[in-house]
Design a protein around this nucleic acid. Structure first.
Lengths: 140, 140
DNA sequence: AATAATATGCAACTTAGTTGCATTTATTAT
DNA sequence: ATAATAAATGCAACTAAGTTGCATATTATT
């Protein structure tokens, strides 16, 4: 039963060349274990069982994970960031589904987005984001 | 020079069957005059010149305008709502462009989205939102 | 084991948005 | 026009997400 999300997390963090810390490890392992995007709050709840982790540190850990392309942030309609792990199979070039009832965010991996739309003159394309809103299987 | 956004705003609010108030009128007129989506703050700034309007009232006015389909809300990456008027030609079934430098939101009216994507079993489609990030003409 | 660079915890802060309640205003029916 | 009434407004106090500065602890290196 020793979960191998910790092993995977360790490998991913080491691979960045930066420091492997307890908090980065715990946080990433939690995100690796989830099928959908978690809020700062939800991650905190999952951490509570074990030793406590400061709110601010968690914000900084998430920011670090994000900047190192281990996770990606999703902006929801409730003004709360949600975080989802980036695996090789799971780049951030995909659509997100937001359930308007339970506010859970699911990544639609198999829904690929066609790139480079036509923009007004002088505009520079950087990234495209597709969000689908509705009810998830549990709420429908 | 008497701007006709007030006339247009009056007509739109009257058409809802609800009360025509000074604040709804002013707010909607401001949004009608803009080419891009405004934050609560930006609307407040534009109001400052004239008589003051309470923060809370403005929030309630914007919520009312939104519920009555006169404007639509856009969730940006900075956790701030932006509001854009809905005209007949300008339904909310379109893409949004967000400039990552100046954070301005522009509606890409001519970028229509194909409807009903395929979702996981049991999921219910409601709405689709396409956001393009990059640099606007002024920031590029 | 000592060092240097970086991560962490704490306290205090900022900012968007919300709630409850008393007062004012827009509409209506007289 | 005016009174009645339902809805809108202003105010004060609140919530909740996220940020900043700084002193202390931890990681990786020598």
């Amino acid at each position: 039963m020793p979960n191998n999300f910790y092993e995977k997390a360790k490998e991913l963090i080491r691979h960045t060349g930066n420091r492997l810390t307890h908090n980065r490890l715990r946080t990433l392992a939690i995100l690796l274990a989830e099928q959908y995007a978690l809020t700062h709050r939800e991650i905190e709840e999952r951490l509570n069982m074990k030793e406590q982790l400061d709110r601010v540190t968690l914000y900084r850990v998430l920011e670090w994970l994000s900047k190192n392309n281990l996770v990606h942030k999703i902006a929801g309609d409730d003004r709360v960031w949600r975080f989802r792990v980036n695996t090789e199979l799971h780049s951030h070039q995909h659509a997100h589904f937001i359930c308007t009832r339970c506010t859970k965010v699911t990544c639609l991996s198999d829904y690929r987005i066609k790139s480079s739309p036509s923009l007004p003159l002088g505009y520079l394309f950087h990234e495209i984001e597709l969000t689908i809103k509705g009810l998830c299987a549990e709420c429908a």
